[in-house]
Design a protein around this nucleic acid. Sequence first.
DNA 1: TTAGTGACCAACT
DNA 2: AAGTTGGCCACTA
Length: 120
Amino acid sequence: MAVKDSKANKQKDFFQQVYAVVRQVPSGRVTSYGAIARYLGAPQSARVVGYAMNAAHNLEDVPAHRVVNRVGLLTGKHHFPGVHLMQQLLENEGVTIKSDQVEHFASLHWDPSEELPPFI
DNA sequence: TTAGTGACCAACT
DNA sequence: AAGTTGGCCACTA
């Protein structure tokens, strides 16, 4: 463990934290990039959460399809193997999608900062 | 190495 | 009210 690694570990840790949260999103619920970022104490790092999802493609543990943007729009669908895969996965869990947008998003939204113990 | 981009969000004009 | 800009972190060229 060199001194140099501490920075790298920290950066890597952020991804891991994102994954840890996404993994806990219940089936049939959705969350948003910003909510995760805010839960991790980095409210302005929502983009990084999105990037983490991009990297999460390899990890089957991470249900990236349950993460949408703040208005419930499936902005990340183009990054799935099939453009409709994200939508189908969600509908398979009971989430209704209309025009690439989650219906009843407000009530389906799963906010980690409310559902999980505070991240400190 | 520097610079540019990205599955976003909030603030400012 | 609507459009633009900045900022965050990681990755690629």
